[in-house]
Write a protein that binds this DNA or RNA. Structure first.
Lengths: 123, 123
DNA sequence: CGCTTCCAAAACGAAATGGTTATGAATGTC
DNA sequence: GACATTCATAACCATTTCGTTTTGGAAGCG
C-alpha cells in the first residue's frame, strides 16, 4: 500500500461519522438514506462522507434503481492495521533489548549529547 | 479509548511526515533537529507535527538542556489497532458464511433490489 | 557579557475539510 | 405524462490544516 493510500485511509478513519458508517456496513450493505438515518446531518453531508470512504477504498458502491448501495471493503482496513502492527513490539514486549535500550536512554538523556540512534532495529 | 482520542490518533497517522517521524522514533529518542533532518521543511513545520503527535498521545517530550527529546508512545497505536480488530473477520476469514453471503451479493448485484442487510452479525 | 544553538510562538496564506441549502438528474409509480 | 423518491452536484461558508517567515526565549560556551 502506497504512502498516499495509507494517508487517505487514516484520514477517512479520523472522522467519527465515517467510522460509524463503516460499522453500520459490517451489518450489511445499505443505501444513503439508511446510512444517514442515525446522524443529525443533511443527506449531502453523508454523501460527502461516502465519497471520502470510497476514495480511500473503504467502500465500494453499486447502483440498483434510484438507490446507491455501499459495501464495506476490508482490504484497506487490513493494510492500515498491518501498518500499525509494525509498532507492535513497542507495546508488546515488556522488556526486550530494545525497551532496555530506550529505558536507559530516557534515564540518562544528558549522555546522548550527539548520538541519538541505535544499532538495534529493523523498520 | 474515546471517540475523540481515536479520531486524533488516526488524524495524526494520516500525514506521511508524521508517520516517518514515528518510524524514526522506533530507533530511539531524538531532538527536533534530528527529526527535521530528512525533510525539506522548516523547523517550525516539524515542531507543529510534533505537537500534533503529542496531542494524539503518540509521543511524549522531555526537555534536557536546550534540547527537546521526543519519545515514541505506543499505547495509542495499540488501542487504534485494537479498534481495527473489530473489522478483522471481514478480511480474515477466507470463506465463512458472511463472506459467502457477501460474495454472492457482489456477484449478483442486480438481485438485491430491496434487501440490503443480513442476519449474520455481532458488531 | 556576548554569541551561538535549539526550539517554540506568532502572524500569515493557501488549500482542504465538514457542514449547509438549493437544484436537478434518474428512476419507479400512478 | 405527472409526480414522488433517491441521491449527486454546485455554490457557499466557517474552521482546520499545513506550510511559510520572523521573532525571541532559554541554555550552554567563549
Amino acid at each position: 500500500m502506497s504512502n498516499d493510500e495509507l494517508s487517505s485511509v487514516f484520514a477517512a478513519l479520523a472522522d467519527p461519522t465515517r467510522r460509524a458508517i463503516l460499522h453500520r456496513l459490517t451489518q450489511g450493505d445499505a443505501n444513503v438514506a439508511e446510512l444517514a438515518e442515525p446522524f443529525a446531518m443533511s443527506q449531502p453531508a453523508v454523501s460527502k462522507h461516502l465519497r471520502v470512504l470510497e476514495g480511500a477504498g473503504l467502500i465500494s458502491r453499486s447502483k440498483v434503481a434510484t438507490a446507491r448501495y455501499s459495501h464495506l471493503e476490508a482490504r484497506p482496513l487490513k493494510e492500515a492495521t498491518d501498518y500499525m502492527e509494525r509498532f507492535r513490539r513497542f507495546w508488546n514486549s515488556s522488556f526486550d533489548e530494545l525497551d532496555a535500550a530506550l529505558a536507559a536512554h530516557t534515564a540518562d538523556e544528558a549522555e546522548r549529547a550527539g548520538a541519538t540512534d541505535g544499532e538495534k532495529n529493523d523498520d
